[in-house]
Design a protein around this nucleic acid. Structure first.
Lengths: 115, 115
DNA sequence: ATATTTGTACTAGTACAGATAGTACAATGC
DNA sequence: GCATTGTACTATCTGTACTAGTACAAATAT
């Protein structure tokens, strides 16, 4: 399901956050769908439950999922925000990089040509 | 000269590497120009000399600077490669991000419009 | 009723990278 | 001779990520 890169500098829990949000954006995970329990997910990934817990906490803070005690963890109802946020962030990143390239003397038109 | 972000997740030594290469690319640092000595630079930035040393090692490994024992540290003769590399890397990053957005159902044309 | 599963909430410990602190050495240039 | 350069160590501190383990309450299934 999710593959982890232990060499990466981004922490495991953050990789989980990113992947889950990616799946939500892509429609692989649908609204109100139940996610694996902390323990089960940890087992599958071969990591410690606390790490999954931390990822779920961050995802809940962002409003991507909803945690219901003794019931389980679920993808949020209104998912639209997740992919909207992702899109916005990505566009902003691209803009920053274009700005960097412009400083190096390359025009936006030249950049677009190369894409 | 260089401003460090201690909140950032990217290590100090790497921030130094990035900034120096940026300055070289921008022409602020010119070929064969002498860089501050390890000790002096460390003093200026208020950090430990070993951290500057590590940055200089990485920069030398990349061929951006040349370290001459008991003489000092200098920007490399052929600087062209530095900004060429930076440009290539940045373009590649942008391509990756466009690919991500396309997966979310946005066409390249739409993306370019928003830039 | 009992057992299982859920999330929650701790504490303690390990491992690693980044950064600091300090010392010492050899070569160069004044 | 003296200051400055890079080099090369070792030891230590610190924060973060992650692991390990335990315990609890609420819901659910049998």
């Amino acid at each position: 399901m999710i593959t982890l890169d232990y060499q990466s500098r981004t922490p495991i829990y953050e990789q989980i956050v990113n992947e889950i949000e990616r799946y939500i954006s892509l429609g692989i995970l649908k609204a109100e769908e139940q996610l694996p329990s902390i323990r089960e997910f940890a087992m599958t990934l071969g990591i410690n439950p606390n790490t999954v817990k931390k990822a779920y906490e961050e995802l809940e803070r962002r409003g991507s999922i909803t945690v219901i005690s003794t019931k389980g963890t679920f993808v949020s109802k209104n998912i639209g925000g997740v992919s909207q946020r992702k899109i916005k962030e990505t566009i902003e990143k691209i803009r920053d990089e274009i700005r960097e390239l412009e400083k190096l003397g390359i025009s936006k038109e030249e950049i677009i040509k190369k894409l």
